[in-house]
Amino acid sequence: MSLIAAELTVEGRLEEVTVAMQTGQVTAICGPNGAGKSTLLQCLAGLLPTEGGLVALDHRPLDQMRPCERAQAIGYLPQNGEIAWDLTVRNLVALGRLPHRDRGEAEVAAALSALDLDSFAERPVSQLSGGERARALLARVLAGTPRWILADEPLAALDIAHQLALIGHFRRTAREGVGVVLVLHDLALAMNYADRVIVLDCGEKAADGDPQVALSEDVIARVWGVPARWLGEPGARALVVG
């Protein structure tokens, strides 16, 4: 199953970007601020109109799909993680079933268990820590049982332990056959945990492929404009800048 963006253009933000992603992988989108990462993710989720190009899910253009059909296939986790009212965690997670128009109690329970939220299920979200809140928001996406999960900086504002726990969940979900696309600022996390990295620069694709290649020292110097070196072995690399 594929999610393809072909010659995608959004005025002033993306310039003819073409990417193709497969399920079963964690794909990271990286790039400096203003590179167009969130714009690309929103286009892939079918949330942003484009001036040119198209996004296709399993060879069907997204704009020809009904919103509910698209929502069942693609789960989107925005950057801000807004929750307007003080719902319980269970009710928050159950919102993920809205595109299916059912209560989906089994799916909600499975999503809560997958993210170790069973003991918090009846707790109001205002009483959650940052890490618990991030997990609850991801569980909301999982409860919709989408084939694709698109998350915009889901690890931002989390401490390192919670970052590792959450990216572990993303990897497990990908191993179960879901396509996971993450916007990441932390290049070391992208290098160590993504199966594939897309690098954007000024709205254009600067690199795309295996993390070792797409995040090479040359690419980092060219795109981010900083000299950097990777230390350590593949899978446990650390980035030293300067």
């Binding site: 919103p67 693609i74 989107y76 986790l77 807004e82 929750i83």
Partner: peptide
């Protein structure tokens, strides 16, 4: 759906 904000709501259909 709007409980989660405008973009998340649209992603929910």
């Amino acid at each position: 759906a709007l409980v989660l904000g405008e973009s998340a709501a649209r992603s929910l259909g």
